[in-house]
Write a protein that binds this DNA or RNA. Structure first.
Length: 285
DNA sequence: CACCATGTTCCTTG
DNA sequence: CCAAGGAACATGGT
């Protein structure tokens, strides 16, 4: 579920639920998720801490922890990997099969489930240190991109996935942004004109903004959701302007051999850096 | 059984 | 030294 927009929507969902809450304890059911800590150290570090703000950086969630008396403030960092989910549930409700970590908040439990276990929840900040600019930062602009991409013969699609170039774009939105910008995913990154790059920046921003506004892409059911339960804690309703489903809003991703919505030509699937890319050879040159 | 999957990191190759 | 490519990670869906 997680590229920047999905993480942003989750952040907005979790922030009011977590702010000010105290962590009573942490249970690690899958040690890989909290690497490089040991489960006992991780639990010890969190116990007694109070949650302040929830922020986002790229695809990472940042949880500010107020210190216990005498200790330093710290930062808990979450990443959903490919299949991670986070939600609050009443204490002692049954956990899903692939629960990685459960944080005890007293009345509620904060659950991180992740079937493929590619996600992380850790105090190790090394992975956010190398992130590039947020899409709305000054550093994500045509002149800056021109400079950073100079001489690169790597395909622009692959560069868009590089979190050091811009933080938060993933495989779905990389294809979608290039389609909107009319740029072939196969173009060498270093050979794009300043005009191409300006369009690309603008479309990346517009696309991500739209996805956030929509309430995010993948139908969000935090917590394996029971939308009917009515307590409002598990279900994040999509915004009022939401129309159509996730897949219907994507113009090229996962649409191999379907007609392009702009020109009617067939959308093509290729593989770049071992990942699928979808594009319209007629609209994207 | 085969292939595919929204991500990151590590190792190898050129 | 650097850029780029590919495998690994682990499980589930089609």
């Amino acid at each position: 579920m997680p590229e920047l927009p999905e993480v942003e929507v989750l952040k907005r969902h979790l922030a009011p639920l977590l702010a000010g809450r105290q962590i009573h304890g942490a249970r690690v059911l899958r040690a890989r998720t909290i690497r490089p800590h040991l489960p006992a150290d991780f639990a010890q570090a969190l116990r007694g801490a109070r949650l302040r703000e929830v922020r986002r950086r790229g695809k990472f969630l940042l949880f500010d922890l107020a210190p216990r008396r005498g200790a330093a403030p710290s930062l808990l960092i979450g990443h959903l990997g490919m299949t991670g989910r986070m939600y609050l549930a009443p204490a002692r409700t049954p956990l899903p099969k692939h629960t990685a970590v459960v944080i005890d908040l007293g009345e509620h439990q904060w659950v991180f489930e992740d079937p493929r276990y590619f996600g992380r929840l850790t105090l190790d900040a090394s992975s956010i240190a190398a992130l590039g600019p947020e899409p709305w930062d000054e550093g994500f602009s045509a002149p800056e991109l021109k400079r950073v991409l100079r001489g690169s013969r790597q395909a622009i699609k692959v560069k868009l996935l590089d979190q050091a170039i811009v933080a938060g774009v993933g495989n779905i939105y990389a294809s979608e942004a290039l389609h909107r910008a009319g740029i072939s995913p196969r173009r060498a990154a270093g050979r794009l004109s300043e005009g191409d790059l300006a369009r690309l920046c603008r479309h990346v921003r517009e696309l991500l903004e739209e996805a956030i506004r929509f309430g995010s892409t993948v139908p969000l059911d935090f917590g394996g959701a029971r939308p009917g339960t009515g307590d409002g804690l598990f279900y994040y309703g999509r915004s009022a302007e939401a129309t159509g489903t996730y897949e219907e809003r994507l113009r090229v991703y996962d649409r191999a051999n379907q007609p392009c919505s702009a020109c009617g030509g067939a959308i093509r699937r290729i593989v770049q850096a071992a990942r699928s890319t979808y594009y319209c050879p007629r609209c994207q040159t």
